[in-house]
């Protein structure tokens, strides 16, 4: 466990809790893409199938349970409890345009042609693009609430920190995970535009607005 990975995981936990906090306290899913949260649910379920078959550490298992349960709770809040506040008209990204390619790529590029490894690779590829509906929604609505911006910043930072972790592991352990690294770089690059807006606007106390 490198420091970068721990920081990444904590940033990830922060993002997940920030989102739950925002929806629960404002009793509203306004500005939140339900499709992105649905895909994150798929990401965690398909990635952590080994939750009961391979034990890495208490930390690892605890985080897996946390990620799966928090993402299910988030989807429940968006699509059931606060359904009336879900802004479906602005959440129009076609999920199949990312789910199908991720599945096809996972059938081609995986570490073993087994159900588990294909599921794991699918999860990694899907995670890289799962944020697209949310980013599209921010551009469509033209702005994001501050707490949503902080959520996206924490979420984008988590995989960016993992990249530092992978560099660290390659340097000290001499091996790396090509599928995770490739997808992780794509995932982080997709936040590029958002990071720019975040640092030039939100940090200066202004609302995140996507200039028309």
């Amino acid at each position: 466990m490198t420091l970068f990975r721990l920081a990444g995981d904590l940033s990830h936990v922060l993002a997940i809790l920030l989102l739950l906090y925002k929806i629960w306290t404002t009793k509203s899913a306004a500005g939140i893409s339900g499709k992105t949260q649905l895909m994150f649910c798929m990401v965690y379920v398909t990635r952590y199938l080994d939750l009961f078959t391979s034990f890495i550490s208490v930390y690892n298992s605890t985080m897996k349970v946390l990620f799966i349960s928090a993402s299910v709770a988030t989807v429940y809040l968006i699509y059931f409890k606060f359904k009336a506040t879900y802004d479906g008209n602005h959440d129009t990204f076609r999920m199949e345009f990312v789910i199908v390619p991720a599945l096809i790529l996972a059938l081609i590029w995986n570490y073993a042609f087994t159900f588990f490894e294909i599921s794991w690779a699918f999860s990694i590829f899907l995670e890289a693009v799962a944020i697209l509906p949310q980013l599209f929604m921010v551009t469509k609505t033209g702005e994001a609430e501050n707490i949503t911006s902080h959520y996206l910043f924490a979420l984008g930072s988590y995989r960016a920190l993992y990249i530092l972790n992978w560099i660290d592991r390659y340097y000290f352990e001499g091996h790396w995970d090509p599928i995770a690294v490739t997808a992780g770089i794509v995932q982080t690059v997709l936040y590029g535009d958002f990071f720019y807006l975040y640092f030039t606007r939100v940090i200066k106390g202004r609302k995140l607005q996507v200039l028309p």
Binding site: S54, F67, Y111, F115, F116, A180
Partner: peptide
């Protein structure tokens, strides 16, 4: 569920 590749990262 072939565990060909133990994934130790989240």
């Amino acid at each position: 569920l072939g565990l060909a590749h133990i994934h130790d990262e989240l």
